[in-house]
Computed example of a mutant assay.
Amino acid sequence: MSLEELTDEIETAYRAFDDELAVSLDRQTRNELALLESALEPESTDELVRRAVHTLFQANVETGTLDFHLRSGFDVTYDEYLSGMTYDEMTGANQYPSMDDERRYQF
Rank of each mutant, 00 (worst) to 15 (best):
R104E: 03
E11A: 05
Y78D: 02
T63N: 07
A34Y: 09
D101E: 02
A16T: 14
L82C: 01
R30S: 14
V23K: 03
L3Q: 02
F74R: 12
E102K: 01
T45W: 05
S83A: 05
E5P: 02
L70N: 10
S24T: 15
R104A: 02
L21H: 10
L33F: 09
E47K: 07
T63H: 04
N94K: 01
M85S: 05
E5I: 07
E89T: 06
R51H: 09
Q58H: 15
L48Q: 08
E62S: 07
Y81A: 09
D88T: 10
D75W: 05
M90T: 03
E9G: 10
L36P: 04
L6P: 00
R103Y: 01
S38N: 05
L48M: 12
D18A: 07
F17R: 08
E9T: 05
A59W: 03
A52S: 15
T7Y: 00
F57N: 05
G73L: 07
Q95G: 05
E89C: 04
M1R: 01
A13H: 06
D100P: 00
T55D: 11
E9K: 04
F74M: 06
N60M: 14
L35G: 15
D79S: 10
T86V: 04
V53N: 12
N31V: 06
F57D: 08
F107V: 04
S38K: 11
A16K: 10
V53S: 06
S24H: 13
R30A: 09
Y81F: 14
L6S: 06
R51A: 10
A39T: 12
Y81K: 04
F107T: 04
D88P: 04
M99F: 02
D75A: 13
M85H: 11
G84E: 01
Q95R: 13
A39Q: 15
E62I: 09
T55E: 09
